[in-house]
Design a protein around this nucleic acid. Structure first.
Lengths: 215, 215
DNA sequence: TGTACATCAGTGAACGCGCGTTCACTGATGTAC
DNA sequence: TGTACATCAGTGAACGCGCGTTCACTGATGTAC
């Protein structure tokens, strides 16, 4: 018996059936365990239960697999942000805060995607589809900022691009420094969510929204 | 002639003289070229012009060298922040903004240190001296927040720890996303410094400081 | 309905490579007397 | 002042390892007739 038993649940023959998906799943698992840098092509093949040559049927090389993971990550990220935004209902302000929390939630629930997206060191020029997916995620954030800015008096309305970059940076900084279970991070006496919420509150107030405005 | 010529400037014999420092210099160069993950012990030895076994006289292993780089990074970082703070002169507000800029400046001028400090994936528990150096850097930021908070009316003075975490996260987010020459980063229509300065301004105003207060 | 054949998605052995690490060693340096 | 010796900081050869990648191959699947 040299080949794998094909019991129920593990049913597989010579052909895997859906190796491409299996490799991506394996990559996510490995990245969450060992980080984006520690993940190897051979590892992914092993985790999927195939020979080290098999992945080459589906991806040009390790980076191509990583790029696909990053692209999917940005797409799921964009979806998650868009769901949180929900067209700005019931008020831009309430929806805006949901978007911020969705950012952190994604970072903490999908650390593997997050790593692939922001820490993989992929040459972005070689994988334009990754950058485009990232742009779509950013566009959601920008739309939220645009709508929120529109609730402010016209003469002190900030550029929505700048505002979006501020919120993105703040969320990203909190996620990178404190937002992951990662042992390398330092602990703080409040949750990342609370930290972000407080910061956004202060920031928006600084923009000129009174705390109750727009609610 | 099997051994290296010892012309002026390259003067070296069998003994290197200061291999420990040379390895750290080499590590910084390599990290800035290939990132924290791509840097290897053997590479560092090669760059320093010694055999692959030589580094073991000075560092237990690759991680120990990386940890030393990270520790030094945090120390220089703390120094840079403290110089920028300069005891809060002439006003806490002005000094405060200098500290933020110093954060970005460090990230952009010392990308290798920055990588080693925040992206090396070192098991922090094994290198407590790294964490302690990081704490010293954070303490400077906290002191600045403390002094700045003291200029606000008592009833709406924010916890300085929270405030420090906000500024740290914001600076870190901007530095990580836009602050490095790195080809992987996306470009934005303003400098990271301007972006940070605007964000800090808005944030402080949100805390209740009028734009001119404390200047 | 059966069969021949093309195509696809795997295998497994092999390769070259660079890394981390160990080892006995040796050249250089400092010091006690 | 010279010499013997201890110590230090290197060498270079060797090892096992896992990775990326290629190659001829083969089992499985789908399809034309």
């Amino acid at each position: 018996m040299t080949w794998q038993k094909s019991g129920p649940g593990t049913r597989r023959g010579y052909h895997h059936g859906n190796l491409r998906e299996a490799l991506i799943t394996a990559a996510l698992e490995l990245i969450s365990q060992k980080g984006a840098a520690g993940f190897t092509f051979a590892d992914a093949a092993r985790a999927a239960g195939v020979s080290p040559a098999a992945p080459y049927r589906h991806f040009r090389d390790r980076d191509a697999l990583m790029a696909d993971v990053a692209r999917r990550g940005f797409e799921e990220f964009a979806d998650a942000l868009a769901r949180a935004w929900d067209g700005g209902k019931p008020t831009p302000r309430a929806a805006f805060e949901r978007v911020g929390r969705a950012y952190l939630e994604f970072a903490s629930k999908e650390p593997a995607f997050f790593s692939a997206m922001f820490e993989s060191g992929l040459p972005v020029a070689d994988y334009p589809e990754v950058g485009e997916a990232g742009d779509r995620a950013f566009a959601v954030l920008r739309e939220a900022c645009e709508a929120h800015a529109a609730t402010l008096p016209k003469e002190r309305r900030p550029p929505s691009l700048m505002m979006a970059l501020h919120i993105w940076s703040l969320s990203h900084g909190i996620a990178a420094l404190f937002g992951r279970g990662d042992a390398a991070r330092r602990s703080i006496p409040m949750s990342p969510e609370e930290l972000l919420e407080a910061a956004v509150l202060i920031y928006l107030e600084g923009l000129g929204a009174s705390p109750d405005q727009g609610r």
